[in-house]
Amino acid sequence: MTRASRILEFLWSGWSGLAALCLLAAVWQAGHEAYGPFILTSPLETIQAIGVLATSGKAWEIAALTLQRAVSGFALVALAGTALGVAGGYSPATMRLVTPLITVLMGVPPIAWIVLAMIWFGGSDATVRVVIVISALPTVFIGAARGITTRDPMLDKMSEAFGAGPVRRLFGIGLRQTTTTLFPAFALALGTSFKVAVMAELLSNAGGIGGALALARINLDIAQALAWVSIAVILLIVVEYTLVQPVKSEIDRWRHAAQPWGVKR
């Protein structure tokens, strides 16, 4: 399958995404009609609020700040989690040492880390990034470690038989097999990054979308709050489909090789 037809197929699959969003909007509208605009503004009003925000340069700056924090935090956690996970996957001793720590990390609520990070770093980028890394690390770690432990040992034997050393085996054979579990973990971690970024901003008064949400709360401005939430979701979708999905579809090309065009499972 050529790259052009893959891109077309990908764009075509956007229709199902659009259908899902329309369903959500319908449920939202029903909620609006049942509880009134003070509890839940209608989707249309929210879109209008987003439109108003889109015309102001200040709003773009706020969104860019959150985007920068979420993406840089995600990049950090992707690197650290993959490195640790791969090490854990190859070495059972590392795995045994790290697994309880991961459980501890998972058990501590992100809110506790936000409080600690605020004390350590104040209301800065570092606070948000640290909380992102701590919250999303278990997911990425498990994704990478699973990928390595469930790899096909025959492929390692094969590449060794043809003269590959440990480093070439890691990069050519081992890492390539982590993608099945690593990419879902990345998608989860990216979502966590945005959620945690907004939450940390809100609580640590660090500006960004979280800061704007705090302001909307003070003003009891539901339309504004929902508009910012929608903007955060839109940012996540944009990053997911420009950063994670293209890489994933390029790497997973072979999985779709035996499927006819347009068939969805």
Partner: peptide
């Protein structure tokens, strides 16, 4: 040397 295995050991990707 080269080796041929029972499992063809082809990289699926």
């Amino acid at each position: 040397h080269a080796m041929i295995f029972q499992d063809p050991a082809l990289m699926p990707w």
